[in-house]
Nucleic acid binder design. Structure first.
Lengths: 367, 367
DNA sequence: GCGCTTTCTGAAAGCGCTTACAGTCAGCTC
DNA sequence: GAGCTGACTGTAAGCGCTTTCAGAAAGCGC
């Protein structure tokens, strides 16, 4: 593609249709070299005020915008960050991306996001395609901890922050929510309220977060000397519908547990609907605690007591750490941060026993 | 930065630490020119099978991955799409991005997303920064219809699809949800159920979608010969809390409307909580209809009748249109697609009158 | 065996930018 | 006024890739 650069520039001064002006045109228009234009644009090196103004005028006249691919090639900086997520469903995702985006934007970075990475091979392909496109990577994939085939495809040259990775991070920085701790908070709250038979609605068995929440549940019970019969651990998959199914089974259990802890809010909502359908009142008959604190949790009736996870904060911190790494690639050994959830106590869990009786009468009245 | 390319390549064959191999190294390793390597990698031009294999081996041995910035500079294709959104809150956003991402990925494109564009100047800046980084743009901003200063910053050289733009699109393809139609569906449903006093909880007054929903509400009432007193139009801002406030006011209205249409589900949920708080039963005392059909809508008690908006579909179609434009830049005049919402009829709206009486007794009993 | 086509490969230019390096040109110092 | 200094500017190489163009090699009919 032989294109005569000088010709091109001299042919037409302003916006030649079909081409976006290059730094050459600007230089020509301003009567300076491309080097000077570049210096003005980047604020590097000394430029006489008058010259600078001429350049700025030319830029404005031509409506010139630097071509980032070219700049990236030259500087080896892209000013963008890749974000790979396991999937794009629900509020969790948008919160996370929001947190990341905020931090990124503040630092002048862009976000290349990509979701639905259930398939390892596909993730690897995307990872490859990102080469030369990003300065860093925020990666959240259940796969890394397991298979490990991904490790090979991880780019060598850019810093990576792993989200909710349940391994050692393999030399990368790591940042995760302490799911187990959150679950313990929830269960201990129920225990403190006097509940002894606490059911659990689990998440997908292959989900690391879900597993941690299950462990937290068991741990809390055990450490209070309470047996956790498998009967009380209901299957679920994080979707509302599975909460409904679990709720139906709970309603029919005999003896019926006085409290339910759902591994996420969506299932808690499903369970709530099912319990109500069966004439049970929450919290009077059954106390209910969720996990995630999705925005509407507080507007349910009753307002849902749930484990609050600072998701946007997770994103923000991940980004901060990543930017730090980008600044100084050899900045010490990998860091592993753990973010602790807190408990948002609302109305869906109340003391057991005392009110359990009252509830029965109430229920009879209203149903 | 004088770097002797031949030297570099000959110094070390395999992964020289600190550098990622370039196409030169691959060529050297395979004993062919860079042109041939490029041809193999892109499947262009004829290459002898044996040569191809040698190249492939070299690629594998060096763990070579093409540098996309360089490729972009050369081909003038970036294989990525910019997505600018007004904000990143809530389920709407994640659904939209999910739809876009799915379509993009299927076509081999990446997504550069950026949220929170309330500020025009900031949007313009991002738009500029995207030059040379994307092959197309999906843009959703309330600002474009109004101020118009954005028009100037819109890149000339890449196709743009505007989402929910309420202008003429200014020559760009446009894709939007028919909010007015959706609102009419909701209100007409309530009218068909015999309701005559239908309250409306509005969205933010500066939000175009919200405005259209308001118009649909008024239109439906008017076309059925029903007066729509301003008294029944409650202020709101799309957030749950504003639904609570509106619900409280509705509960105290005298005469009390028999139905409420909320401009989105979040406010409907808030309203539901407030009504209940005031001892009113939904749907027996007051029918309630929302807008959006967020995932949990069907799991509320009662399950929320709401306007179903195919958000992911909106994203998918926007992407499809954009890709089409990218393939053929001069592909006809701007298209303006309108996606019609549908009504998801559930349990929160029931016939007026007949049951209104029954409701009163029920309420007395349970409150 | 010769000219011709066909197939494959390589040299090199060019994508638009940054930046090391080498000027140029005032303004100074003596 | 020669020589220096230092502020400014220009030249050109290089970032890693694609692609044109032309050359080399190989196959073919006669």
């Amino acid at each position: 593609m032989p294109t005569q650069r000088p010709d091109r520039a001299s042919e037409v001064e302003a916006a030649e249709p079909g081409r976006t002006p290059s730094i050459y045109e600007v230089g020509r228009q301003a009567g300076v070299s491309v080097a000077t234009v570049s210096r003005v644009l980047n604020g590097k090196g000394p430029v006489r005020t008058e010259t600078r103004q001429r350049v700025l005028d030319a830029v404005a006249a031509l409506n010139y915008v630097p071509h980032s691919a070219a700049r990236s090639l030259s500087t080896r900086r892209t000013m963008s960050i890749g974000v790979l997520l396991p999937d794009m469903h629900g509020a969790f995702f948008s919160e996370l991306v929001r947190g990341i985006d905020l931090a990124a934007r503040a630092a002048g970075y862009h976000l290349l996001v990509s979701g639905s990475h259930s398939d390892q091979a596909e993730t690897a392909a995307v990872l490859q395609a990102l080469h030369g496109r990003v300065d860093g990577l925020i990666l959240m994939t259940p796969a890394l901890g397991g298979g490990g085939s991904l490790r090979a495809s991880l780019p060598r040259r850019v810093p990576v922050v792993l989200l909710n990775d349940h391994g050692n991070g393999d030399g990368h920085d790591t940042m995760r929510i302490d799911n187990r701790h959150g679950a313990r908070l929830a269960v201990e709250h129920l225990l403190a309220l006097g509940h002894r038979a606490v059911a659990f609605i689990a998440g997908p068995p292959d989900n690391a977060d879900a597993l941690e929440r299950l462990r937290g549940y068991r741990q809390a019970l055990r450490s209070h000397g309470i047996a956790a019969p498998a009967r009380l651990e209901l299957a679920g998959d994080f979707a509302e519908e599975s909460g409904v199914r679990a709720g139906e089974r709970i309603a029919r259990l005999d003896p019926r547990p006085t409290a339910v802890f759902a591994a996420n809010d969506a299932m808690a909502i499903g369970c709530l609907a099912a319990l109500r359908e069966h004439g049970l009142n929450v919290p009077k008959d059954v106390s209910l605690v969720g996990f995630d604190d999705i925005p509407i949790a507080r507007y349910l009736t009753p307002a849902l007591t749930t484990v609050q996870v600072p998701i946007a904060e997770l994103g923000r911190q991940a980004m901060a750490r990543l930017l730090h790494r980008i600044e100084r690639p050899a900045g010490g050994p990998a860091a592993h941060a753990v973010i602790a959830p807190t408990l948002a106590i609302r109305a869906s869990a109340i003391p057991a026993g005392r009110l359990a009786k009252q509830s029965r009468t109430t229920r009879r009245k209203s149903s």
